[in-house]
Write a protein that binds this DNA or RNA. Structure first.
Lengths: 195, 195
DNA sequence: CAACTTACATAGGGAGCGCTATGTTTCTGG
DNA sequence: CCAGAAACATAGCGCTCCCTATGTAAGTTG
């Protein structure tokens, strides 16, 4: 048999995966602790022992999952050389993300809605986004080879999210070319290369 | 006494207003029918008589509320003359909307999450956004005085939504100047005026 | 003004929820 | 090998939710 530590680690991961799936599918409020435990092939007792409750599970999910995605994106960005390639890389990671099986945006929406009503979740979300902004700012400043007129982070991340939302409504309406053109337009506007 | 028609109309509006407030505050799942009715100073019986249930109330809310906002935005857009003014007008209507008391985005998020799990709501949302896109496309083509390289609707609406999301995380990070610069960048990229 | 209808209120059933208290099995340290 | 702890399972309490069935008062119609 496995050690207790191994058993515990696997149960933890199973619960996190199950929660991510169910939150995206049915919403946070729509996912009962029992349903999450059942999908993880455990029972609710395990959830309470590991995370103390539904909120604890949500916060733990937020931590683990964001770290995973950030690593992949940064790695792929480093291989691109032109601005178009970099922007395309960003867009690809949003429109066809490496993890989460396309339910990424659904979960993100759930977290937003939840954060709007929960201070702890709000702080979590704010930290995540501020970190992402400053990462983007550094990268864009480097590409542009100059200081920025405006912070590019909020505008670029916002556009990425907004484009993906629109693509969700109608995939045909947001082609890759359109997305890349729009993203390039914002990069240009923030770095002041035009006009 | 008022006529039955008047009574009915007022109850309907009270219920819609109460639902919009509560959905934004506590989420759709977090708002019970009884709580909505109580805020409207009615009882749950009135909700079921008027809308047949929670879903019916949500759909009715969607119809009425979108129409209201669209009218205001189109009217204000008509008074602007330069592209910057028009873009600023769009942004102002998103960042400081005429109705809903700032809870606009919270309700929008709720609807998105709900639509992800409900086909009827998904169709509603798609219709709304497609209408908004084509409206924006027509307007931008007219401003630019030329055909567009890409459909500007999805990119512009997406950026507006995304910027407002970022502003929600940190109001100081998304100044009006930044938002307008980014929006202008996208308009330029879609109409192909640069490069 | 009586019969009818409309508009909403009231009461409660049935189901599901989060969480706690406690039981059972598996591992670990001496 | 055996106490004790750790990891999870089980049972059930108290609450809330959506919805239906039914009651009642006000308005409408002939």
């Amino acid at each position: 048999m496995a050690t207790q530590g191994e058993r515990r680690a696997e149960t933890r991961q199973r619960l996190l995966d199950a929660a991510a799936e169910l939150f995206a599918e049915r919403g946070i409020d729509g996912s009962s602790v029992d349903a999450i435990a059942e999908r993880a092939e455990r029972t609710s007792g395990a959830v309470y022992d590991h995370f103390g409750g539904k909120d604890g599970l949500l916060f733990a999910l937020l931590e683990s999952w964001v770290d995973d995605v950030a690593v992949v994106i940064v790695a792929e960005l480093a291989t691109a050389t032109t601005i178009d390639e970099r922007v395309a890389s960003l867009w690809r990671n949003v429109s066809d993300p490496p993890t989460g099986g396309g339910r990424w945006l659904a979960l993100e929406h759930e977290l937003w809605s939840y954060a709007a009503r929960n201070e702890g979740a709000r702080d979590h979300l704010a930290r995540r986004y501020r970190a992402a902004w400053s990462g983007v700012d550094e990268a864009v400043a480097e590409w542009a080879g100059a200081d920025l007129d405006h912070s590019a982070g909020p505008a670029l991340i916002g556009l990425l999210l907004g484009l993906e939302m629109m693509r969700q409504v109608d995939p045909a309406a947001v082609t890759d070319e359109l997305a890349i053109a729009a993203l390039r337009g914002v990069v240009g506007a923030m770095s002041g290369v035009e006009r």
